[in-house]
Structure formats: structure tokens, C-alpha cells
Amino acid sequence: MSESIIFYVLALFLIGGASGMITARRTIFSAASFMLAMIALAGMFALLNQSFLFLAQLLVAVGAIITLSMLVIVSVNISERYIPKEPHLGRDLLLGVVIAAPIVALIITALRTHFAASFAPIPDTFGTLASIGATLFASWVLPFELISLLLLAALIGAVVISRKGERS
């Protein structure tokens, strides 16, 4: 019972934050709503007993992504007149909702029928760092290494892009 209440409150913050992020006029309020949505998402991970994902979400999404976005907002310092005006924002969003509704309904139905089978009780070590680490390095080593290669490519790309301005 209390779990449902917590879930509904978190869901409210998540949806509110996400909609605030796309409808807010100023970038700073968009970033603040994004932060609210990410913290609510971390709460949902905690509700699902995923201690590591909860902490990783806070560390990465809030501690790194939002900090970097805020840093960019503060450094770039766009003045009011360069922000594009969106006169028909409400109408466009409603149109988007109408178009996306069938696809979302399809996904929800698919997930419901697929996971309607019996749920086995989770072991005690579900979601802890040790179990995730063990699974990652035992069965998913190749994707792990490929992701690290991807990150390396992103790092090199960032360095190259930031140097290009110097040469020209």
C-alpha cells in the first residue's frame, strides 16, 4: 500500500519534470525539471530494490549530466532574443501525443502480455553491486568492452572537435 503511494508520487514528479523539461521557456527551468525527473527516476530504481542503479542514476544523471548541462548554460549564456519562439507549443505537443499514443499503447500491451507470466521471488542479492558486477563480467564481457571502446571514441571525438577551433 505504501509502495503504491510512493510510486504514484514519484511518477507524478517524473511526468511533471519531463513535461516541464519540454515546455519550459527558459533553459534553466528546463534543466531544473530534468533534474527533478532524474531524481524521481532514481527513486523508482530504489523502489525496485536496485541499490546500484539508484546510486548510479544519481551519480551519472544528476551529478554528471545535469552539472555539465548547467555548466554549458552558465558558460554559453544565451540572451533572451536568441531562444527560438514557439508560438504553437501547446498545439504541437498535443499533435505529438496523438501520433505517439498508438505506439505507446502497443508497447504497453506487449510488455503486459510478455511479463504476465509468473514472477519468481528475487534472491537477496538482487540489484546489489556485487551481483551486477559478477553478471557483467561473467556473461556480458564483450558488450562491456565494446562500450568502453565506444566511450574511447567519444573522448577522442570531443578532443578533436575542441581542437579544431584552435587550428582554423
Binding site: L55, L58, G63
Partner: peptide, 15 residues
């Protein structure tokens, strides 16, 4: 998970 909590919440302070 004490140390991870400290890192995660400490990062919130900068916000």
C-alpha cells in the same frame, strides 16, 4: 553501500 552514497549525494551539492 556507504561510499557510493557519499559520492552520489556529494555530487548533488554542486547543483
Amino acid at each position: 553501500y556507504g561510499i557510493l552514497w557519499y559520492l552520489a549525494i556529494g555530487a548533488l551539492g554542486i547543483i
